[in-house]
């Protein structure tokens, strides 16, 4: 998860590179082994709220065609990610940098003729990746900020002073005890400990 430059081809988390070494071929020539696939993956995904309709995707490509991110990325193709998910290419999908490029503008959800909530399928995939300790570093910062301050960004002292000068009311305080409980209850704390262990 070091390189998040999606404009480079084959930036799918390094797995393609490993395979390239293994087979001595470029990514698009790789023949997938059935034993590498997880045939139950699509069922698992379809049980996650928002991702229920994944199996209805018939690969029309409307999501990719209308996606503002895909327009400026060489690698982000929501249609392809839906197909890979249906085919059970679990490891490839979850370790891919590309799943983190959805901006959640929800255009794909509004345009899908099959009612597949593509952005929500991607969220489900990201959640599973995060559980395995795979997430871009920016999310670790957001998590730590919210856990420690209640706010997603660390608001500098200077800003708080300026608020007073501009006669804005003081910012509401966070209840850090409650927030910490919610982090523990939803097991995000565990995910993070796993992350920290991996980093160490």
């Amino acid at each position: 998860m070091k390189n998040h430059d999606s404009t480079k081809p084959n930036s799918d988390g390094g797995q393609a590179n490993d395979r390239k070494k293994e087979f001595g071929r470029t990514e698009h020539k790789i023949v997938l082994k059935a034993s590498d696939l997880d045939p139950k993956f699509k069922y698992k995904i379809s049980k996650i709220p928002g991702a229920e309709r994944i199996m209805l995707c018939f690969q029309c490509g409307t999501c990719t065609a209308d996606c503002p991110i895909a327009k400026f990325s060489e690698t982000y193709r929501p249609r392809k990610l839906m197909r890979m998910t249906q085919l059970g290419m679990k490891d490839r999908v979850l370790s891919s940098d590309v799943i983190w490029l959805c901006a959640a503008c929800f255009t794909c959800i509004d345009h899908c003729p099959q009612g597949v909530e593509i952005a929500n399928v991607l969220r489900a995939l990201r959640n599973l990746a995060a559980k395995e300790g795979l997430m871009p570093v920016v999310f670790k910062e957001l998590v730590s900020n919210i856990r420690n301050t209640g706010y997603a960004y660390r608001i500098p002292e200077l800003r708080l002073k300026r608020r007073a000068e501009k006669e804005l009311p003081p910012l509401p305080k966070a209840n850090l005890e409650d927030i910490s409980k919610l982090f523990n209850l939803t097991h995000l704390s565990k995910t993070l400990e796993k992350e920290e262990r991996q980093d160490a």
Binding site: I48, P49, G50, W100, A104, R123, A124, R126, N127, A130, M135, F139, L142, V143, I146, G150, Y151, A152, L171, P172, K173, A174, N175, D178, I179, L182, F183, T186, H187, L188, T191
Partner: peptide, 17 residues
């Protein structure tokens, strides 16, 4: 009265949170 982030930035890593 009290504030915490709406949760949106963490939806990608943990929907339940």
């Amino acid at each position: 009265p009290e504030f915490n982030c709406c949760g949106l930035p963490l939806d990608p890593v943990n929907h339940e949170l």
